[in-house]
Structures are given as structure tokens and as C-alpha cells.
Design a protein around this nucleic acid. Structure first.
Lengths: 362, 362
DNA sequence: TTGAAAGCGCTAACAG
DNA sequence: CTGTTAGCGCTTTCAA
């Protein structure tokens, strides 16, 4: 400390060991650039003009120090953050994961970071704990995947004061919503099956988010409009395997010649369950799905379905959220069509199935 | 403004419209509870004893105001946050999504929020932009999915000063790592195929994260140990459809009787591509995959594979990260086995295939 | 165009 | 056990 010039560790030359432990802050940059902290801030945010000379010096200092502005401090001072919280009941199933990816990609392109929180159950305490964790981090906006009851519960737990957009689910008046019109697609799919000559179409339903999903409504409407009987609905879980059990059940009922499933994974399960009982698709039974899962095209038989653009859905939702955050007008609802994709799993009813119960098999 | 008592909007009765616009802060709580802000803080963090009476009053005030502590302010003052950044090259494919879910569930259980950032390319500028966005938010730790080159690039862009855990990828000395031993599983799978009587096993490789993935190494080692020829590797992308193209190619080569694919989705594609050319699995060609995708069990034929516990992998990685963040000792490497699951897509070589090239088909 | 001062919400130190 | 004081890193007045 007493001017030990020539000491191997002379203070003037050795950088303090602590120097690169602690991340550089705005003062470090200002000091190195020979300007004030607000000037660094101005260069960073573009909030005000800064002379070309100082701008350059600041930029060099930033690079030299590897400086990265502290988002917490920013959020603290100006009240808004660059984080979008995504709340979802599940995150690893295809539709969910794709939708979230759509949100993330759009958000990142606009400089927003995405936090994701899984809502495990619909039980109030657990929902609140999860939502609280997500919202302790100051967020610029919230996207809720309302594909299921967990999503509905999550939305209810989000304070109304936050910019929020819901994805999918029943059309409601609460917050702006981005949806895909499932009804038209499922109506068309069901009508197609009927046109092929099936006397009715059975329905395997995945857990609905509200009273009833558009897929179920579209299916029922098509049946009613055609004046054919509406069979009782069979429920499945989200697990493909539950579809297999349903397929086996359905195989026992000789009146079943066409089945419309809530999603493609369930359709694959149903097809396999039918096969377990010796029935072929589409020769004995036609099976349609929904979503256009990446494997549907590959499955044997490939799955007739209605494609949903999940990534587009997520990106659309972020677009609405962005307008909301900017304080501008936002459409209450944006929609997209699910487009029917005809493949191998659907065909005209075969003679075999009608004649079953006797010796028709084999 | 001049004491308009009786006015329909008398200031004294109407709560200020701004009052519930701004979220309650710690001072609001302190005021309502009749204590100081630090006391509220003490109740919240448990940093020091607070009298039962005041504790109760504080808790009531918190509920009454719907108060939620501001994580930015907390992060700012004590230098550490409760956010874990997850960096991944993809987020919607099965293995990725499951792994991330594993991280999220464990993290949430410990009170950490997960941010997720997709790394779109290996190009330095794009990687840096994405990583910077994620790390501007002060983070307690980072988890990098090193399943692919994007993940490797992301890891390289993370400052060494941050608590970081890598998932999968080549065993390296840089940061603690959570992996699944792919080599043993792929060795066993390949050996099984050989034992069934196949003269060799072809390999379809998904894009490796580094020089070579354990799946490829295990396959080659099994072949070498058995003293059989090592066929040239066929590359595919991550898309199931690319597997289909590969399947068609492979069908043209009569020496191919067994194929080991980098993952189950590619295996499904290969099976379909083989079928396109009139070949049956496993009668003509045996096909094995890797991962145990949820659909593998349902596919026709169901896929022989090696199961990876992705969710467990993610949760294990978070466990290591947590120790790292606590400043304690962390195992440099944790491992789990991929367990072989025997199903329908693999069998003994059929006579048909060997005799092909002539009139053996149909 | 630039700097000085103030303050966002919270907690660590320090009295008391 | 509890309150007062100070300061985390940044941006936003306000003067100059």
C-alpha cells in the first residue's frame, strides 16, 4: 500500500482479481469511456442524441468490458420488463410445444425473453403458487395456453391489470384471444366421412378445456345437419395409449365404421387398438384425427386429419400481446382455419364391418 | 378538487382509480400493517424473528393488498435471482421438450422460474444475440441442452462465471454435465440384432452434437467386437420425413437387413420408406430406434428401441445446478442408462431379403 | 449534447 | 425484536 514500485504485484498494473468476478456495470463503462453513466444509457437506449465521438468510445468500452445491461435494474426503474410469461398445462405434447416455440421465436425477434411455467393441476393453491412464481418476475405480458382446464385455471389467477392474451379455448370476452377455428375443420372432416357412405361417425374426445371444444361441436353439427344419429362420445386422456384402449372397445361394437378422434396421437392409438382386435383401417373402420402431427404422415395408415398451425398460433398471440403492451388497439380475437388433409386412414365403409358378428372376419 | 362533498365522485370515498393500477409494494404493506418495510421483508424472507402479532398483521396486509414481492428489486439488491435460463437448439421435438419439462418441474419445486431461449443457428452473431437476451435477465444459473451443434455453440457463449450445467453431448471437462449413457444402449441394441443372425447392422445417424454421438460409437463398437463389417453411415435430419427418404434408399440395397436409427422418429420414417418400396418390417428388414418416443409403442410395427428418461435427465441437471449455485461440491458428471426395449420392429433376418435382386418380391 | 441528482422496490447493516 | 439508513444498477428529470 505504500507505493511498492517494482513489487511483482504493483497495484498500478495488475487488474484487481475481483474485477472480472463482478460483471461490469454501467459505471465501469462510463468510467472507461470517460463519460457519465446517463450518457452510456443514452447510447444504449437511443433515448437522446449523443455525439459521434462519445458514442464510439462508449461502444468500445462496452465491448472491452463485455458489458451487458442488467435487466432487473431496468425493469425496476421504468416499471416494465422484457419478459413474457407463458403459462401452460403441459409443455411437452406436440401442439403445446409448437405453440410455445411460436411464441418464443416471435418474442425473441422483438427482444422479449420468454419464461415458461407449467400448471400441474387445477387445484387453486397449486395454480396460485405457480402463477405467483411466474409473476414475481415483473413481466411485460402474459400468454396463457387455454388448451385444457389447467390453462383455464391459470388464466383466472392472472391479475386483470396485466397485458394478457389467451390461446385457444372457448371464445370468451375476458382477454384478447388467438384461436384456430376447429369447428369448421371438424365439421368438414365429419361431413367427408358421411359422404363416403358411413351411416354415422363416432367421436373420441380428448379432455376439453371448457364445456365443449370446437372439435366436438363441429362433429355434432355435421351429424345433425346430415340427419344421422349422434352416437355417445367416448372419452380419452391425452396419452396415446389411452387411445389404444378405446380402439379395442370400439372394435367390439359392430356399428362403428368411422371414428373421429380429438387428436392424431389418439387416432394412432385407436388405429392400433382396432388392429389389436383384428380390424383394419380404413378397410374395416375409418379413423380421422386432428392437428396433423409430424408422424401422422408416416403412420401406417397415414392419418386423415385437420392441420393446425400451432407455431403460427403462438406467433399470432404474441403479435396481439405486443399491441396490447404498446397500449394500442388489439383485435379481441384472431382466427385461422384448420385445413383438412386427406390421407389413408379414411375410406368408404367396407362390406365386412356391416356383416360382422357372424363369420365375416379373417 | 375543492371539497365537493356529495359529488358523485367525491374524492374521499372513491378509491383512486390509479390505486389498483400500480401493484402494491412493500411500503404499502408496511403502512397498512403499521410496521416498517424491513419488518415486512423479514416476514417474507424469514431472515429474522418478528413478533407473532406483527407477523399476523403483515400477513393480513399482504393478502388484503394482493402483494407480490418484486423479483427485480430483490435480484438487484442481493445480486442473485431465482431464474434459470435454459438454452436449447430446439424445443418442440420430443426429447427436448421432455427434458425442458423435467428442468422446469424441478426448478419450480425449488422456487426457481425457468426462461427458455431457442438457439436457431450456430452462426456466432445469432447465438450471441440469443444468449445475450437470456442473460440480460440476471440468472441464478444456466442449463444448456447440448443435443446438437446449436447447443454446443450456446454453451461456448455463456460466461464461465455463471453457474452452468450442460445436458448430454460429448463428455467434456468444461462444466458439470448430466448425460444418459447412449453407448451401452446402442451397443446392446446392435449386439441384439447381430445375435438374431443379421450379418451386419446399418446405421442412420441424426445430426451429431459433436464429433460423434454415443449412439454411433456404441453401434460401431458392437460391430467391431463382433468382427463384422462396418457399413457406411447414412445421415438424416431431425425430421421424421427425412427418415422416409432414407428408408427408400436403403430398400434398394439388398444387403441391408438390419437398421439402427438415431432416434425413433427417424426409425418410423425408415419403416415407412421401406414399406413404400414393398418391404416389410421386421420380415424383410429389422429396424431399431432410440429414445422410446410415446408413439413407438403404438406404431405398426411397434419400435424396438432404447428408452431415455428425458424428464429425469432434466431434473438431474437441475439438481447439479442447484448444488453449484449453493457453492457446494457438484459431481462433474451424472449418468443414467438407456434401457433396451424389445418390440416388434426387430426380428431374425428373413430368407426373402437375402434372395432379393431377382424375382423374390411380391 | 451532457452531467448531477433522484428514485424505482427491496434487503443488509446497523443501531437501539 | 424493530426501525433507520444506505445502496444495488439503471433511467429519468432537470439544469447547464
Amino acid at each position: 500500500m505504500t507505493g511498492l514500485v517494482g513489487s511483482p504485484y504493483g497495484e498500478t498494473i495488475m487488474p484487481s482479481p475481483a474485477a472480472d468476478q463482478r460483471p461490469a456495470n454501467i459505471d465501469d463503462v462510463a468510467r472507461l469511456a470517460g463519460v457519465s453513466a446517463p450518457t452510456v444509457s443514452r447510447v444504449l437506449t437511443g433515448a437522446a442524441k449523443v455525439s459521434a465521438d462519445k458514442t464510439r468510445r462508449v461502444e468500445q468500452a462496452i465491448v472491452a468490458l463485455g458489458y451487458r445491461p442488467n435487466a432487473s435494474a431496468r425493469a425496476l426503474v421504468n416499471g416494465r420488463s422484457r419478459v413474457i410469461a407463458v403459462l401452460a398445462g403441459d409443455t411437452s405434447h406436440y401442439g403445446y410445444a409448437e405453440t410455445i416455440r411460436g411464441v418464443e421465436v416471435s418474442a425473441r425477434a422483438s427482444g422479449y425473453l420468454v419464461s415458461i411455467t407449467v400448471i400441474d393441476s387445477t387445484e387453486a393453491e397449486s395454480v396460485h403458487a405457480a402463477v405467483d412464481l411466474a409473476l414475481q418476475q415483473p413481466v411485460a405480458g402474459v400468454v396463457v395456453l387455454k388448451f385444457d382446464p389447467e390453462g383455464v385455471a391459470a388464466l383466472a389467477a392472472v391479475p386483470a391489470s396485466l397485458a394478457t392474451v389467451a390461446i385457444s379455448g372457448e371464445i370468451a370476452t375476458g382477454v384478447p384471444q388467438a384461436v384456430i377455428d376447429e369447428m369448421t375443420g371438424s365439421y368438414a372432416l365429419t361431413a367427408h366421412l358421411l359422404e363416403l357412405g358411413h351411416s354415422t361417425v363416432h367421436h373420441v374426445r380428448v379432455p376439453p378445456s371448457g364445456k365443449e371444444d370446437g372439435r366436438t361441436t363441429g362433429w355434432r353439427n355435421a351429424l345433425i345437419d346430415a340427419g344421422v344419429p349422434v352416437p355417445e362420445i367416448t372419452d380419452s386422456s391425452w396419452e396415446p395409449l389411452s387411445g389404444r384402449a378405446v380402439g379395442r372397445e370400439l372394435a367390439a361394437d359392430p356399428t362403428v365404421t368411422a371414428v373421429f378422434c380429438g387428436n392424431d396421437e389418439i387416432a394412432m392409438g385407436v388405429i392400433r387398438g382396432l388392429a389389436d382386435e383384428g380390424l383394419r383401417v380404413p378397410d374395416d373402420v375409418s379413423v380421422a384425427g386432428f392437428d396433423d402431427h409430424p408422424i401422422s404422415e408416416l403412420f401406417s395408415p397415414s392419418i386423415t386429419t385437420a392441420r393446425q398451425d400451432f407455431a403460427g398460433l403462438g406467433s399470432r398471440a404474441f403479435g396481439q400481446l405486443q399491441q396490447l403492451m404498446a397500449g394500442g388497439e388489439t383485435p379481441r380475437l384472431t382466427t385461422d382455419q384448420a385445413v383438412v388433409v386427406l390421407r389413408e386412414s379414411v375410406g368408404a365403409p367396407g362390406a365386412a364391418r356391416g356383416a360382422r358378428g357372424g363369420a365375416a372376419r379373417g
